[in-house]
Write a protein that binds this DNA or RNA. Structure first.
Length: 835
RNA sequence: GCGGGUGUGGCGGAAUGGUAGACGCCGGGGACUUAAAAUCCCCUGAUCCUUGAUCGUGCGGGUUCGAGUCCCGCCACCCGCACCA
């Protein structure tokens, strides 16, 4: 008899075709079944699927298939986050059109996804670069505009003075343009903004209801929104003007030793008008990038304006600086510097020789304790007149009270969250549907003229926005006065595209973005899965959009994602030649304990295990793996071993192990015997326990634990003698692993003589009577150290356990005649004898 | 710099404050085979005076009858920081 082998090359495609032909995974909005919306973050069509996608989509797929087995109508859609910079970069580098490049990538990646057998509803697929999609997005943008949530103002961008173009943060490397190498400048442009700050309070409070989100993500969003209560007050300056400042630490007001304003603060501008050196310093601040990380890691620099500010309590005159670490768009753009209790102020004061008084200590005795660094801990106020002895919180309230009573300041809540700048000076994005008319100002494109479609005939031979230099596209008649006008040439941030795509998946009428009632059938998303890198921006923007659309009267859903899961990355070892150049895993081989390049035997250094990335070449192509091992082995690997929220190290040995298990499972299913007789209660118990545990693990997305359970059950079945129970256990195992290995499962299911698809089969039921063990192992400790174990009937009483424990020879040897002080008994678990 | 996270055998990891190392990978030994592949069985944290004992969950303290788990203080690495998606 020839050996029984599973051949995925012959089997996988057959079942994929059958699922497609039978519309197995098409979601029916009209179904009476309970509904589950399982969603993974849709991919950017970069060209090829990578292992990170496979891991993400496999997790969602197992959950979607499991929910179907549990009788749910499941919506599990897929689409493409298709706008963005890489398409324009490809256009510049390879001379291809961004649209064509994107379409080709989508076609290729879709074929790759189909080979892995995901239970996706492809009938709802779309790409955000489809005019139908972005046309609806333009309509929603107009809705938000009508709701008063869209406005224009000046904001800073990274400007490359050589290429004459706006740069994204990632295109700025060490303060220089990535192509030109020229030092980047900050420049102000008129740009479109969405009023996310209108919802700051609501977005913050809403986090409390998201009890199925990771705490860390809620915390990150909370910190990002950053509500703080502080004091706004004005200093009287020596030139007779007043300078409003904001501080979250009014309790430390007696520790202020200087005042600092942002480089673009009016006071700084005024000083610069009469002082060339100040002008030079401000120009200096304009150099360098705009990111928070750059601003905060840069050396703290200041320029003494010569002005002084009168301290409201002590009447001391404090020097006023222009400082590079003060931000114009937080608070009032001016701060009181308290070096003793703020690390940035400390660094600044140390550099410029300013006094560093202590005004907070652990106790009032700390008043003269020296400060080696800023002390930002809680404590009691010292050296502060009437505040002395108060706690930080009491002092904050007291200072605010006195400021309000004296009429020179007031308590104010300030948010770290800033309004969302959505303008991008780029071609490959959703055109912003507005027209600039010299006579009428900024005018919305009439709705019957949507979508505003991107022109196809654009060139990328020059830097800057192709829409701006297109000969005709922007020229248009004003909708109001019909006079000559110009289209807005900025496009929308791609985060806008991904802020409502999950609504369009749930409902896609032709004449409007979505139907509110149909959306309400599916939303909120039952399980959303994606990378932590989206923990703040994408997820906050999507939460904001659903609220904004609700205010605009479009939607009845507040929180879009009921449950969130952030999965870890797929990592791989890295390989480098002596000259530092990177090699891909298929260019190297093991040579004893060392690594060498296959082509010429040059020695290779195997380096750290890091996220798979093109730049380090440590990528493994999913297609190649599917070719070799089939879809089920890859899926199994993605679920095995590593907990889903942690990184998953790819290894050849690991996938080999999965492949062996695929074959082992296949042989096991071949041993199903429909006419076997006899009962094997222990095995039956194991099967029922596994059914309950795997269900629980899948629902908690603990796939690695579910996999371990399935190995356990397979091991037990292999050891068991043939019986009716064994056949039942085999059938149970098949059902339990069908969401993970759907192709093998369908094939084996058919072989068992079942008519329907296993994808449509119900999850096996659990007999609670079979779950409980009748015997337990109880640990016996002496002074907390394990000395023996006892096997007893479950539920044995305390006295009996104590007696058995003391009867143990090993225990008696450990006690060694010492007096027993205490015996702790935990029923069914342990006895601890304290001597 | 600020915010968030992670740390357990050779490796990935498991473990409601109660037997640390389930399950898998690697490795070792054996069976089968002319041979190999495949498959099956056994072993596999470290150390030692090996019928057993001692040590062991990044490091240093603490709480507890009992700590991987709770508390305090460190270290290392990873992720995010608003125009990458």
């Amino acid at each position: 008899m020839s050996e029984r082998r599973f051949n995925p090359g012959a089997v996988d495609g057959r079942w994929q075709a059958r699922w497609e032909a039978e519309n197995t995974f098409t979601a029916d909005s009209g179904s009476p079944k309970p509904k589950s919306y399982v969603l993974e973050m849709f991919p950017y069509p970069s060209g090829r699927i990578h292992m990170g996608h496979v891991r993400n989509y496999t997790m969602g797929d197992v959950l979607a298939r499991y929910k179907r087995m549990r009788g749910h109508e499941v919506l599990h859609p897929m689409g493409w986050d298709a706008f963005g910079m890489p398409a324009e970069n490809a256009a510049m580098e390879k001379g291809v059109h961004p649209g064509g490049w994107t379409r080709d990538n989508i076609a290729h990646m879709k074929a790759q996804l189909k080979r892995i057998g995901f239970a996706l509803d492809w009938t709802r697929e779309f790409a955000t670069c489809d005019p139908e999609y972005y046309g609806h997005e333009q309509a929603l943008f107009l809705d938000l505009h009508n709701a008063g949530l869209v406005y224009r103002r000046e904001a800073e961008v990274n400007w490359d003075p050589v290429d004459q173009t706006v740069l994204a943060n990632e295109q700025v490397i060490d303060g220089k343009g990535w192509r030109s190498g020229a030092p980047v400048e900050k420049r102000k442009l008129n740009q479109w903004f969405l009023k996310i700050t209108d919802f700051a309070d609501d977005l913050l409070e809403g986090l409390e209801s998201l009890d199925r989100w990771p705490d860390k993500v809620r915390l990150m969003q909370e910190n990002w929104i950053g509500r703080s209560r502080g004091l706004e007050f004005s200093f009287s300056l020596s030139d007779g003007t007043r300078l409003p400042v904001y501080s979250t630490r009014p309790d430390t007001i007696f520790g202020a030793s200087f005042v600092a304003v942002a480089a673009d603060h009016p006071v700084a501008q005024a000083v610069a008008q009469r002082n060339a050196a100040a002008q030079g310093f401000i120009a200096e601040c304009k150099r360098g990038g705009t990111t928070a990380a750059e601003v905060e890691t840069a050396e703290k620099l200041g320029f003494d304006t010569g002005l002084t500010a009168r301290h409201p309590f002590t009447d001391t005159q404090l020097p006023v600086f222009i400082a590079n670490f003060v931000l114009m768009d937080y608070g009032t753009g001016a701060v009181m510097g308290v070096p003793g209790h703020d690390s940035r102020d400390f660094e600044f004061a140390t550099k410029y020789g300013l006094p560093i008084p202590r005004v907070v200590g652990r106790s009032t005795a700390d008043a003269d304790a020296p400060l080696a660094e800023a002390d930002t801990d809680d404590g009691l106020i010292v050296n502060s007149g009437f505040l002395d002895g108060m706690s930080v919180d009491e002092a904050k309230a007291e200072v605010i009270r006195r400021a309000e009573a004296g009429g020179w300041g007031q308590g104010r809540t300030v948010w770290r969250l800033r309004d969302w700048g959505v303008s991008r000076q780029r071609y490959w994005g959703t055109p912003i549907p507005f027209i600039h008319c010299a006579a009428c100002g900024v005018v919305a494109v009439p709705r019957d003229q949507l979508p505003v479609v991107l022109p196809e005939d654009v060139s990328f031979d020059a830097p800057g926005n192709p829409l701006e230099r297109h000969p005709t596209w922007a020229q248009v008649g004003c909708p109001q006065c019909s006079g000559p006008a110009r289209r807005e040439t900025d496009t929308l941030d791609t985060f806008v595209d991904s802020s409502w795509y999950f609504l369009r998946f749930a409902s896609q009428p032709a004449d409007k973005p979505f139907d509110a009632a149909e959306v309400a059938q599916w939303l909120p998303v039952e399980q959303y899965i994606g990378g932590v890198e989206h923990a703040i921006l994408h997820l906050l923007y999507a939460r904001f959009w659903t609220r904004a659309l609700q205010r605009a009267g479009r939607l009845e859903v507040a929180e879009p994602f009921a449950s969130l899961f952030t999965q870890g990355m797929v990592t791989h070892e890295t390989y480098q030649l002596g000259d530092g150049s990177w090699l891909s895993p298929d260019q190297v081989r093991r040579d004893g304990a060392d690594w060498v390049r296959i082509s010429d035997g040059l020695p290779v250094t195997a380096g750290r295990v890091v996220k798979m990335s093109k730049s380090k070449k440590n990528v493994v192509d999913p297609d190649a793996i599917v070719d070799r091992y089939g879809a089920d082995a890859v899926r199994w690997f993605m679920l095995s071993d590593s907990p889903p929220e942690r990184d998953l190290p790819w290894s050849d040995a690991g996938i080999e192990g999965c492949w062996r298990f695929v074959q082992r499972a296949w042989r096991l299913f071949g041993q199903y015997d429909a006419v076997a007789t006899g009962e094997d209660k222990a095995l039956l118990r194991k099967a029922h326990q596994a059914t309950a545990a795997v269900a629980q693990d899948i629902e908690a997305l603990g796939f690695n634990k579910a996999v371990a359970r399935l190995y356990d059950l397979a091991n037990a079945i292999e050891k068991a003698a043939p019986s009716a129970s064994r056949s039942e256990a085999i059938r149970t195992l098949l059902l339990l692993l069908s969401p993970m290995m759907p192709h093998l499962a369908e094939e084996a299911w058919a072989e068992l003589g079942e008519n329907g698809l296993i994808a449509d089969a119900p999850w096996p039921s659990v007999d609670p009577a079979l779950l409980a063990e009748d015997e337990v192992t109880v640990a016996v400790q002496v002074k907390g150290k394990l000395r023996d174990t006892l096997t007893v009937a479950k539920g044995a009483d305390t006295a009996h356990l104590q007696e058995l424990a003391l009867a143990s020879e090993k225990v008696q040897r450990s006690i060694d005649g010492a007096a027993i002080r205490k015996i702790i008994v935990v029923p069914d678990r342990l006895v601890n004898i304290v001597v």
